[in-house]
Design a protein around this nucleic acid. Sequence first.
DNA 1: GTCTATACGCCGATAGAC
DNA 2: GTCTATCGGCGTATAGAC
Lengths: 200, 200
Amino acid sequence: MGNKSTRDHIVESADQLFYQQGFEHTSFADIAGVVKISRGNFYYHFKSKDEILDAVINLRLTDTAKMLGLWDGMSETPADRIRSFINILVTNRAKIKQHGCPVGTLVNELARLDHAAKSNASKIFSLFRGWLSKQFLQMGCGGESDGLAMHLLARSQGVASLATAFQDEAFIYLEVKQMNDWLDKCIKAHPLPEIQAPQV
Amino acid sequence: MGNKSTRDHIVESADQLFYQQGFEHTSFADIAGVVKISRGNFYYHFKSKDEILDAVINLRLTDTAKMLGLWDGMSETPADRIRSFINILVTNRAKIKQHGCPVGTLVNELARLDHAAKSNASKIFSLFRGWLSKQFLQMGCGGESDGLAMHLLARSQGVASLATAFQDEAFIYLEVKQMNDWLDKCIKAHPLPEIQAPQV
DNA sequence: GTCTATACGCCGATAGAC
DNA sequence: GTCTATCGGCGTATAGAC
């Protein structure tokens, strides 16, 4: 169990390289250099580069689901769980500044290439979307929950994009603070079911 | 004057293709197919593919500057000028859904490739940033102006990114409405110098 | 399972005729 | 200015030895 198979090594290394360099720009030679196998050996484990991409996307899907599960167990309130999401921007600020958001960059690259796996990759976004929507629903946001989830997802993407473009980590901190403030307003606008306070 | 040179044709076609397919994914054969010249002919006009990229970036810089100049002349108030910026998301919704934001996708691709032209490309973002900042300053936002410009730029990027990922034009309309509402709040928070109203 | 050797195509770029 | 022909390299993918 502790020993990772060559196949796992390939997928994990490809995962990193696809993030850092992009899918198309990453060659078998690049992955081979990290995993330290020969180029020919890939085809024992995968039929094509696209199959490696599928494996990487599936890895990210399971990893994301695991992380969301962890966040579910870490906080008492849905608002605090949403803060777990917001704060990954700060946690990963260095890598985001260099390579952007791992989800957004992959989905947008595949969309642009009109790659067959693009809909599969966007399922990673859907995981975050559904999870966030669930939290907003638990906060009492009702029918607005999905819209709020999309809004927060979009803001995170925008922050990552500009942090990369301007090589600016301080901007991440600023926007994360504003997102947390925005969340506070959402909490006040949607109090617990018992006490219906007037809206702003 | 009315006749465009072959060089101009190359740059304009490359501009479109870089937007639709990405810089790296676009080959000389692709551009040649649109301009209808032979591959060898490129090298009379440009020394390398990177020189075509430079020309494309310069074209976008001048086009962007022109557009911002037009917006300056189109509206009376800085807030209405900012709305011109917000509304391009709606105007270009179909293309954004397909290929994302032309500025963001190029800058992020070049950043990921660690391409020499990446800082040059991000100057297009800087044009928008400086122009927006100027408008917020005229609205009386003072030292917050640049932060507000970055905030709006980031939200636009996020909207474009998710619209592409989820193939969702309706989301663009929703978020554009929210950005316009947000701008209204900014106006109320920063009234004309004569009348200082209390903050929210 | 992993290797070496190699096929085959596309890429950016060059040379030189017209 | 535009063309054809071609080079050298790297890309994915295959064949077959070990």
